[in-house]
Write a protein that binds this DNA or RNA. Sequence first.
DNA 1: GTGTATGTGTTGTTTATCCAACACATTGAA
DNA 2: TTCAATGTGTTGGATAAACAACACATACAC
Lengths: 188, 188
Amino acid sequence: MTNAKTDPRILRTRKLIMDAFMELSGKKEFKDITVKDITTEAMINRATFYYHFEDIYDLLEKVLSEVLLVNLDCDFYQNNDLNEESLVKIFIAITNFQKSLSNRCHRGYEDTIARIIREQLEVVLYKMLLNQNKIEVDEGLRITAVILSWGIYGASVEWRRDDKGMLPEEFIKLAIPSIISGVNITKE
Amino acid sequence: MTNAKTDPRILRTRKLIMDAFMELSGKKEFKDITVKDITTEAMINRATFYYHFEDIYDLLEKVLSEVLLVNLDCDFYQNNDLNEESLVKIFIAITNFQKSLSNRCHRGYEDTIARIIREQLEVVLYKMLLNQNKIEVDEGLRITAVILSWGIYGASVEWRRDDKGMLPEEFIKLAIPSIISGVNITKE
DNA sequence: GTGTATGTGTTGTTTATCCAACACATTGAA
DNA sequence: TTCAATGTGTTGGATAAACAACACATACAC
């Protein structure tokens, strides 16, 4: 949670690299982007790239995670319970994120992207659950977060598949009762 | 003329500092801008500032020189003779530069600014004169450049003073004949 | 095949930047 | 006055970034 103050040069350089990568993603397919392209655009040395990232796939992963987190983070999960409103917002954030990706060119990396979304989602949901239960750690809540993250991500896939022109918020609201209250047979 | 390749970190950091300073100039008066303000905005260490600039006045000087050069440089003085057209362009560039400064807040530094404009102007004019005479060095042309730079700067001061709503290009065109052909009594 | 070109990832050395600490000046409030 | 707060400019040691050089892989032409 705390990083004991990282060197500002590191933050600055990482930002330069990530911004350069996002800029290039708007112009080329991922498979056509070389490390040299990125470092030239970022105005840093190629060796410096490898100081911060394993390789270009590692960069992809971290960029996507960060972009998604920006979409999710600031609005909630500080100071927000996991209720209908926040679930809708999260779902919208995910569909927005996927929409923004389809503009950029990451064909062939759908699985990676799916995993990243789900992992970030899990982290956020877990934090919100802990927060609203005022607990430090809890394995039960963690597993709940895992299940919810898979479920919500699956819903976003389903939403994209049947393009009935339904709005994301409409779509997810159909499922929210069973998420909030659980699968309760004695519904009536 | 050639710098034997400067370290990219230096170029990058100088740009960060200068951009930060210009950003702040739009918000505060020069006298209220501290070195800490600049380095915070530029995301660099305060000691690094002093690695590149003597002090904040040194920075002011270099920023103004660079901004003015950008206004002048690219358009001419490569591949351009000193004729009516280029003189008009130069004059417009100077008045534009002064207009852009009046938005920012450099009150109390008019003399510094005047000197910077004149010095840069002299350099540009000298290069153009050498260029069109196909000479390497010439003390006569250098002095011509000095006189011209003072004269043209003086014209810009005069133009601002009597705000008859005359356009810069109209104003300078009145003087161009005597600049080009010299003060020739047997005019007719 | 052989050569040329382009990309990846690593290494050792040099250099720019960070940082904490310092002395000193200025300002304003107690 | 004295003290606290804020700004300037400098220094020595630690660390990130630059750079050139390297081995290796892939591809494409002749």
